[in-house]
Amino acid sequence: MAAHTLSKLPTTSSTSASLFSNSNTRRRRPQSLPLPWLGTNNVSLRYSNLRPHEQSKHRPIAASVLSSLPTANPERLSSAEKVPKWSRKAIKSFAMGELEARKLKYPTTGTEALLMGILIEGTSLASKFLRANGITLFKVRDETIKLLGKAEMYFFSPEHPPLTEAAQRALDWAVDQKLKAGDGGEILTSHLLLGIWSEAGSPGHKIMATLGFNDEKAKELESLSSESGM
Rank of each mutant, 00 (worst) to 15 (best):
I91D: 00
Q177K: 13
N133Q: 02
R46I: 05
E216K: 13
R102G: 10
A167Q: 08
I120N: 03
V83S: 09
L147H: 04
R28I: 12
R28W: 10
A62P: 00
M96F: 15
L115D: 06
R59L: 09
S21C: 05
P161E: 14
R27P: 03
H205Y: 12
K103D: 12
N24A: 15
L45F: 15
S48H: 06
S93K: 03
F156S: 13
P107L: 01
A126T: 05
K92A: 12
K105V: 06
G204W: 08
L194Q: 03
K180A: 07
V65T: 12
L137G: 02
Y154K: 06
L130G: 04
W86V: 06
E98W: 05
E220T: 08
M1A: 13
R76K: 13
L163C: 04
G122N: 10
Y47E: 07
L99M: 13
G117I: 12
L221C: 00
L69H: 05
I145R: 03
P161A: 10
E81Q: 09
V65H: 08
T144V: 10
S190T: 15
G97P: 01
L192W: 04
Q168R: 15
L35S: 08
G122A: 06
L50K: 01
V83T: 14
E152Q: 12
R169A: 11
S68G: 05
D172N: 14
V65A: 08
S64A: 14
E165T: 12
N133F: 09
L224D: 00
E143C: 07
K92E: 11
T15R: 07
Q168M: 15
I135E: 00
I187D: 00
E220W: 01
P52Q: 09
A80H: 14
T210V: 09
S87Q: 06
R46P: 06
W86H: 04
K82I: 03
H58Y: 14
W197D: 07
K92W: 06
K85A: 13
V65Q: 07
R28S: 10
F94A: 08
L19N: 12
F20A: 14
P74R: 07
E143Q: 14
S14E: 05
A170Y: 01
R29D: 07
L69T: 02
S228M: 15
A2R: 10
R88Q: 09
S225V: 15
S202H: 01
S78D: 04
R29H: 10
R131I: 08
V83C: 02
K105G: 01
